[in-house]
Computed example of a mutant assay.
Amino acid sequence: MYIDSYTPLILLIFVASLVIQGYLSRTYGRWGGVRNERNLTGAQVARMMLDDNGLQSVEVRRVPGRLSDHYDPRNKTVNLSEGNYDAPSVAAMAVAAHEVGHAIQDKVRMPALVLRAQLAGPLSLGMNLAPWLLMLGIGIQMSGLIWLGAVLFGLALLFHLVTLPVEFDASRRALQYIGARQLTGSAEGNAGAQKVLTAAALTYVAGFAMALAQFLQILGIARRSD
């Protein structure tokens, strides 16, 4: 394996990720402009879904930013971006239900979610160190440092891999709930919610693919250093 061998793959994945981001933006914009027939805001959908799943203690909060929505397991809060918190759109409904899906995962202690939470802290530190270890190892021609950097990049790849089932499951829970409660009010609205969540899921797939390509490239550098 050589450092150059994966450069075309990385460039291809980078271009694909830009296409996916564009698709997400267009899909979100399209269904962000379509009002759901129940006229429910993202905050109302989140509150309803939380209560229906016995999560009355979980707070729904408004946070700044666009598509900054997330569930915080540390303080048990569903955080919705300003647009999704107040908007009665199909997109806001889908995103809000997805984040509640994570709260439900936390309640049932989904193994992949627990593992991701345990990996987050150490991997954040490791990923900050990895590039420096790699550059230092190459600079002083010390293969041990290069391999250590490669291992840290490999652990980051594991984090991306674990994230995939967590995100897919949250979307599955969201779509199941939206359909069961007939929240969009139409088959077209259900299809729109699915398109929004599918586009969002593709961004995680692209992130994993990019991490995989980078890891393979770094692994090639480490093998050449021996």
Rank of each mutant, 00 (worst) to 15 (best):
M1C: 10
D4E: 15
S5R: 14
Y6A: 06
T7I: 15
T7D: 07
P8G: 06
L9I: 10
I10D: 12
L11R: 12
L18F: 12
V19M: 15
G22F: 06
S25V: 11
G29I: 09
W31N: 01
R35M: 12
E37I: 03
E37V: 09
T41M: 14
G42P: 03
A43L: 05
Q44C: 02
Q44G: 01
Q44E: 15
M48C: 04
M49C: 09
L50S: 00
D52R: 13
L55T: 06
S57Q: 15
E59A: 09
V60P: 02
P64I: 13
G65Y: 12
G65F: 13
R66G: 07
D69L: 11
D69E: 10
R74D: 12
R74H: 12
N75T: 13
T77W: 04
N79R: 15
L80D: 02
E82C: 07
D86W: 04
V90M: 03
M93T: 12
M93A: 15
H98G: 04
G101S: 06
H102T: 04
A103C: 07
Q105S: 04
D106W: 09
R109G: 01
L119Y: 04
A120F: 10
L123C: 12
L125F: 12
L125M: 11
G126N: 07
G126D: 05
L129H: 04
P131R: 15
L133G: 11
L136M: 11
I138S: 03
I140C: 03
Q141A: 10
M142Y: 09
G144L: 05
I146Y: 04
W147P: 02
L148P: 01
G149I: 14
G149C: 08
A150G: 03
L152S: 02
A156Q: 13
A156F: 09
F159R: 06
H160R: 15
H160Y: 14
L161A: 15
P165K: 13
P165C: 08
P165S: 10
V166T: 06
E167Q: 07
F168A: 14
F168K: 01
D169L: 05
D169F: 05
A170C: 08
A170G: 05
S171E: 06
R173N: 04
L175G: 08
Y177Q: 03
Y177T: 00
I178D: 08
I178F: 06
L183Q: 11
L183K: 12
L183F: 08
L183M: 12
G185M: 09
G185W: 10
A187T: 11
A187F: 05
E188Q: 14
G189L: 02
N190H: 09
G192Q: 13
G192N: 10
L197M: 00
A200S: 10
L202K: 00
Y204N: 03
A206E: 03
A206F: 05
M210Q: 10
M210K: 10
M210N: 05
A211W: 03
L212V: 05
Q214A: 03
L216Q: 14
Q217E: 08
I218K: 01
I218R: 02
L219F: 14
L219V: 14
G220L: 14
I221R: 10
D226R: 09
D226P: 02
D226G: 13
D226C: 00
